[in-house]
C-alpha cells in the first residue's frame, strides 16, 4: 500500500512539475507583458504544488532523498506525469488548449481529493484548489476569447483544441498503483471525472463557438513511465545543472 501511495504522490508531483516547467518556457516570450506574468504565475503555482508533493513523497520514501533529489535526480522512466503536460508549448493556442484541458481536470481532481482519507493529500489539495480555480478561469476565458475572436484566432485555437485532444484520455485513466488507493478512499477514481470534465469542456467550447474534436487515436502511458520523446529534453533542461554539479546551491 505504501509503495502505491508513493507512486501516486509522485504521479501528482511530476505532473505539476512538468507542466510548471513547460509554462516557464514562456517567461520573456509571451505576446504581451501582462500574459507573460500570468503564465509564469501559473507556472510557479504548479511548481509550488509539486514541492509540497515531493516533500510528502520524500517522507514516505524515507531513504535519504529529499524533494530536490526526487525532482532533479530521477530518470525519464521513473517520471509518472501525464503525457498531456509534456507536449511542446507550440504557439499560444496550443499552450492554452493543453492548459484548458488540464485545468478542468485538475480542479475536479483537487475537489475529489478533499474527501481523501489521507490527511496530507487532503491538505495539499485544499491549498492547491484556490490556485487551480483561478487557472481554470484564466484558461477558459482565453479559449472563449480566441474562439469567439477573429477568424484567425478562432481557426488557430480550434486547430489546437483538435490536436491536443489525443492526449486527454489519459486524464481519466487509472494506473495499477491507483486501484488499491481508490478502494481505500485515498485517491479518487479518475474515471469518475469523465462526465463532469466533458460537460465543462463542452460548455466552454460552445461559448467559444468551437466544436468538440472527434474521437480518434488516443495516447497514454505517462502515468506508468512510458513517455513521449519530449520528456527527455525537458528533463535535460531541468536537471543538467544538478547532474553536472550535484548538490550545487544558488
Amino acid at each position: 500500500m505504501k509503495n502505491e501511495l508513493i507512486d501516486y504522490v509522485l504521479h501528482l508531483a511530476d505532473t505539476s512539475l512538468i507542466l510548471g516547467q513547460r509554462l516557464g518556457e514562456w517567461c520573456g516570450h509571451a505576446f504581451v507583458l501582462e500574459q507573460d506574468i500570468a503564465i509564469t504565475n501559473i507556472s510557479l503555482d504548479l511548481i509550488g504544488q509539486s514541492r509540497s508533493l515531493y516533500q510528502y513523497a520524500a517522507e514516505l520514501l524515507n531513504d535519504g532523498r529529499d524533494e530536490d533529489a526526487l525532482c532533479m535526480m530521477r530518470n525519464e522512466r521513473e517520471f509518472k506525469n501525464l503525457l498531456l503536460v509534456e507536449i511542446p508549448n507550440g504557439d499560444f493556442a496550443q499552450t492554452l488548449a493543453r492548459q484548458f484541458y488540464f485545468d478542468v481536470y485538475h480542479e475536479l481532481q483537487c475537489q475529489a481529493l478533499l474527501n481523501s482519507k489521507d490527511e496530507r493529500l487532503k491538505a495539499i489539495a485544499e491549498k492547491s484548489l484556490k490556485e487551480v480555480r483561478y487557472h481554470v478561469t484564466w484558461s477558459a476565458e482565453w479559449v472563449i476569447r480566441l474562439g469567439d475572436g477573429t477568424q484567425e484566432s478562432h481557426d488557430r485555437i480550434q486547430k489546437s483544441i483538435n490536436e491536443v485532444w489525443m492526449w486527454t484520455e489519459e486524464l481519466m485513466s487509472t494506473a495499477p498503483y491507483e486501484k488499491e488507493l481508490i478502494e481505500k478512499g485515498i485517491a479518487p477514481d479518475s474515471s469518475s471525472f469523465k462526465i463532469p470534465w466533458m460537460n465543462k469542456v463542452k460548455e466552454i467550447l460552445k461559448e467559444a463557438t468551437l466544436t468538440l474534436p472527434a474521437d480518434e487515436t488516443k495516447q497514454s502511458g505517462g502515468k506508468v513511465g512510458t513517455h513521449t520523446e519530449f520528456l527527455g529534453y525537458i528533463l535535460a533542461d531541468l536537471q543538467h545543472i544538478q547532474r553536472s554539479y550535484p548538490g550545487l546551491k544558488w
Partner: peptide
C-alpha cells in the same frame, strides 16, 4: 497601468501583475 482588451481581462491582468 496595463493593457487589456476588456474590463474582465484588465481585472485579471491587474490581479496577475499588481497583486502577486
Amino acid at each position: 497601468s496595463l493593457h487589456a482588451s476588456d474590463a474582465r481581462m484588465a481585472m485579471e491582468n491587474a490581479r496577475d501583475v499588481y497583486t502577486r
